[in-house]
Amino acid sequence: MRLAPILGRRLLGAAALIAAVLLLNFILIHLAPGDPALTIAGGMGGVTEEILRDIRRAYGLDAPLHSQLLLYTERMLSGDLGRSLFYNAPVLDLILERLGPTVLLVLTAMSVALALGTFLGVLASRRPGGVVAHFVTGVTLAGYSAPAFWVGILLLLVFSAAIPLFPVSGMYDVRADGAGLPRALDVAHHLVLPAITLAIVFLAQYSRIARASMLDVLGADYIRTARAKGLSDRAVLYRHALRNAALPVVTLAGLQFGNMLSGAVLVETVFNWPGLGLLAFESILRRDHPTVLGILFFATAMVVVANLLTDIAYRIVDPRIRAGTAATGRPR
């Protein structure tokens, strides 16, 4: 199969998923106890009859359900994710404002987890059942079993309180209003602990996949050939095996994006990192439903896009998948 038709099918699938999230949001608004207008308005009170009337008109809440859904879809697809009464601002603006910090945090954590996880996985694959392998298993099991928010607080206790190396919260020092490089360094300084926290949680999965994939590859004939040629252990592991074993790890990274966003909610809350997760948390406490629903929609759309990109990327990277021969192992 060529790339174009597959791409077309994937795009259609992605569009269907986004439509499904839209429908889910709509259903949630109507299933929530009480008046849907009140759900859309949100807020801990202070909602006037006038505001409710405006919302009913804007969302056609007096019309039959199917025309409501149509109107709702139209609004959402034109980028109108609703209006936050707390901020008195469009939800989309609020989300876009907070998107940068979350993407920075998630991508940094993912890179750290990917690099460290792969490294640990390779270490463990060298001698299965050995001391190093057991150590790696122990470390990753502990990382997987620890609640993310607790790891974050422990890191704060050690590296902010006991040894004051890193700032306690926020994304930059409010006293310094620098720009350019000093600003970037300031953000990086604030980023260290949250990124490590998030990375620790996902380390286990990467190192496990990396180990399994390496063990698979290390049994292959071309590895025996490489060893027979007298190549060093390191050259065999990193130049020959890892290249071929990396694909499942990279795929997992793409598919993990949604879980990373979930983890980011907890980590951002611990470190007061001004991203989408913190906004979601604060909005729930304020009963700011339009913002919460908007974030759910936006985040899911991001996951769909991330999955789509992963899919396309590994089709391009791995010629076996591109040619559609991976399943059967023989050319067309």
């Binding site: 949630l28 299933l31 949604g258 979930s262 979601a280």
Partner: peptide, 17 residues
């Protein structure tokens, strides 16, 4: 699988208590 699990659970809890 594409729904960010924690965000979805948070939304449910905030709407339904």
């Amino acid at each position: 699988q594409v729904l960010p699990a924690l965000l979805f659970a948070m939304t449910l809890v905030s709407l339904f208590g």
